[in-house]
């Protein structure tokens, strides 16, 4: 168990280090995702399976996709096409996917062995979280909803195109709408997951 923990932590640190030294934004992002996956594994190991799932869905999923969207949108233009061809080279994907595979293997290993693990461990269940979330932290949840609203409104206002701008970013609209849709979904998922 301990070995698994340190192993996952090591991968997390390693991939983060790689992520922040990459030149290419997309490469960095991929490594970052692996890093987040590793953190999720760590969560699982230290008794927070619910958070591990959330980390996967929201952080590694939604937020990173948000990043990806924006990076891609920013490259819309003349040089976009040739850049995109380089992104899709298998070599780019090799490193992250290899590491991700390792993580999955580890996760399965841990999941299989955890039942027989000798160490008694306090696993915080989703129910426990839900109870305290809507018990003592009810006000905080309301605040979070306000927070998300602020984020939503702010992003909406800032992301909106200027009234008289040229139409050269024509394709951007849909993508951006998707971004905000994602945000809203995300907010919703947050709330619904609380209810779980």
């Amino acid at each position: 168990m301990l070995i698994a923990f340190y192993f996952a932590a090591l991968i997390a640190v390693l991939t983060t280090a790689i992520a922040i030294t990459r030149r290419h934004a997309v490469h960095a992002l991929l490594y970052l995702i692996v890093s987040l996956l590793a953190v999720a594994v760590v969560f699982y190991i230290i008794g927070a399976p619910f958070l591990a799932a959330l980390e996967l869905i929201i952080d590694a999923g939604a937020i990173m996709v948000l990043f990806l969207f924006v990076i891609m949108m920013l490259n819309i233009g003349e040089r976009a096409t040739e850049v995109e061809t380089t992104w899709l080279k298998p070599a780019v994907w090799a490193g992250p996917s290899a590491l991700a595979t390792v993580l999955i293997a580890e996760l399965i290993l841990v999941a299989v062995t955890s039942g027989s693990s000798a160490a008694p461990m306090h696993v915080v269940t989703p129910k426990e979280i839900g109870v305290s979330l809507f018990g003592p932290y009810a006000i905080a949840v309301e605040l979070v909803s306000l927070l998300l609203m602020a984020g939503l409104v702010g992003a909406y206002h800032l992301g909106r195109r200027a009234v008289r701008e040229e139409e050269q970013f024509g394709t951007g609209t849909d993508a951006r709408r998707a971004v905000f849709g994602r945000d809203a979904v995300h907010a919703g998922s947050d709330r619904t997951s609380h209810a779980a």
Partner: peptide
Amino acid sequence: MASFFLGLELLSISLYALISYPRT
């Protein structure tokens, strides 16, 4: 801590958008 942190973030996130309000 939680309410402190959330209050602070509510403030900051609104401010990001407010500061760049004339976004053009």
